[in-house]
Design a protein around this nucleic acid. Structure first.
Length: 441
RNA sequence: GGCGGGUUACCCAAGCGGCCAAAGGGAUCUGACUGUAAAUCAGCCGGCGUAGCCUUCGCAGGUUCGAAUCCUGCACCCGCCA
């Protein structure tokens, strides 16, 4: 199975029209002005990613794909990783951030740059440029900052920004450090405008205040009119937060969220959301997505749209071969066939995709469940078993004290433990070929 | 610097000497129904575990037979005044 080619949909007159159709623009500066600038020739644009963790997550993926679409339309992307802004911290609506060490932030910058460059082409005239705002911020003295930059900002306007006013109203208040964040980000836009001629910044809707901060600053000091695009926060139709599974973020780093878990996340997309997700997260054309819209309406039980979505996004993030491997594993594990009929290599590959444990015959199933993180504690495991929520090789486990026996092993010495309907873990048993010595070291 | 208010389990939030492992809501989780969906209903929801025990209510001490609840000190947060 091959993923869709990354391309723009030529049935649209302008890339802007495609972005609007995909639901990627919720707020913007003058769209018609931007449309004509884009029609006149390649536009240089940027989006910033602050290093607040060692990996980007699905919220960032929206921005990366928005950037990619603009790049496919011939424009020049500048991917900014905020080595400076990451040291300050964007005000969250709820509470003050804990500052991370400089070493930590520097390390995250390196990691995020590597991730970001995987989503944007580095070939041709409009290859991606990686920039770091620490390059122009680290040498700035407090006096320069206050005289040259700060003078352009009115406190009244700064206080009016949603991010700041929300915090002022909350119990947490806001530090001067975080209050200053918007100045740094506005200055980034100005620097990129001056140095590189960047005239468009995109970002999430929650960044809108910061985006227009840059636009205003450039208008004020350079007398130039530049653009900003804000994409909507992706929300689930049932009101829960998008991009979380069991309360944990879905990361694009395969070490943090396995490709299998990543694929399963998308596969479980709600019918009510799946078309919107195809628009945002895949390169399928309008025509193809319209067809899936029909399929969801007429035969939702086949879940064709979810399957395609899961495959496409997994391929974008982890590559086509990994996406196909994960599909094969999912089909083996969720297929109708008897697990006992699966051959050892198929099982081995499937177990490899799952959290798994190497254990010995006689280990209590509850302990295996804890080791594979199916459960947080033995008590939770016992509780689940008593509620009928644990299965060994698709057979419900009745006894909270049940242990793994040799009869439970499938081909190749594997077994499968399942919590609830769809959370799986693999069990591998060392079949005793190795000497049973437990020499001290 | 002064005065007042606050810090409870994943989140919000009650409790104000024993009936408190701690109300209520949300989230997560499990079951039924299903399409590895949604909605709905039911259960669970600190740890170990048959009873029972252990660790928790910002931190450290103290009073008491007994403290999340009272006292002292400390830290942090919010507001008003200077």
């Amino acid at each position: 199975m091959q993923p869709a080619t990354q391309q723009i949909d030529t049935s649209f007159d302008s890339i802007i029209d495609e972005l609007v159709w995909r639901g990627l623009i919720s707020v913007s500066t003058d769209l018609d002005a931007l449309r004509s600038d884009l029609a006149a020739g390649p536009v240089k644009y940027y989006c910033g990613f602050d290093p607040t963790a060692g990996s980007l997550h699905l919220g960032h993926l929206v921005q990366l794909l928005l950037m990619r679409r603009l790049q496919l339309a011939g424009n020049v992307p500048y991917a900014l990783v905020g080595g400076a802004t990451g040291l300050i911290g964007d005000p969250r609506p709820t509470a003050e951030r804990t500052l991370n060490s400089r070493d930590q932030v520097a390390q995250w910058v390196t990691q995020l740059q590597a991730q970001v460059s995987g989503y944007l082409s580095d070939e041709g005239d409009n290859a991606v440029r990686l920039v770091n705002n620490l390059d122009w911020t680290s040498q700035l003295s407090a006096i320069d900052f206050l005289r040259d930059i700060g003078k352009n900002f009115r406190v009244g306007a700064m206080l009016a920004k949603d991010a700041v006013s929300a915090r002022l109203k909350s119990d947490a208040g806001i530090s001067y450090t975080e209050f200053s964040y918007q100045v740094l980000q506005a200055n980034d836009f100005l620097e990129l405008f001056r140095r590189e001629g960047v005239t468009l910044q995109s970002g999430g809707q929650d960044q809108w205040g910061n985006l227009v901060g840059g636009v205003d600053l450039i208008r004020r000091v350079e007398r130039a009119s530049v653009h900003a695009l804000g994409s909507p926060l992706i929300t689930n139709s049932d009101g829960t937060k998008f991009g979380k599974s069991e309360g944990n973020a879905i990361w694009i780093d395969p070490e943090l969220t396995s490709p299998y878990a990543f694929y399963q996340f998308w596969l479980n997309t709600d019918d009510a959301d799946v078309i919107a997700r195809l628009k945002v997260f895949t390169f399928l054309t309008r025509e193809e997505i319209t067809e899936y819209e029909r399929l969801v309406a007429e035969e939702p039980f086949r879940r064709a749209a979810q399957r395609r979505l899961a495959f496409e996004v997994t391929a974008i993030a982890h590559g086509a071969s990994q996406a196909n491997a994960v599909i094969a594993a999912s089909e083996a594990l969720f297929g109708q066939g008897d697990l006992a009929t699966l051959d050892a290599p198929t099982l081995a590959a499937a177990v490899d995709e799952l959290p798994h444990a190497d254990v010995e015959i006689g280990t209590p199933l509850s302990a295996i469940g804890v080791e594979t993180e199916l459960f947080r504690s033995a008590g939770e495991a016992r509780r689940a078993i008593s509620q009928g929520g644990l299965y060994l090789n698709n057979v419900k486990v009745d006894d909270a004290d049940a242990k793994l026996s040799a009869d439970d092993l499938l081909n190749g010495g594997f077994a499968l433990l399942r919590r609830g309907k769809k959370t799986l873990a693999g069990i591998r048993v060392n079949t005793g070929d190795t000497p049973g010595l437990r020499s001290g070291f």
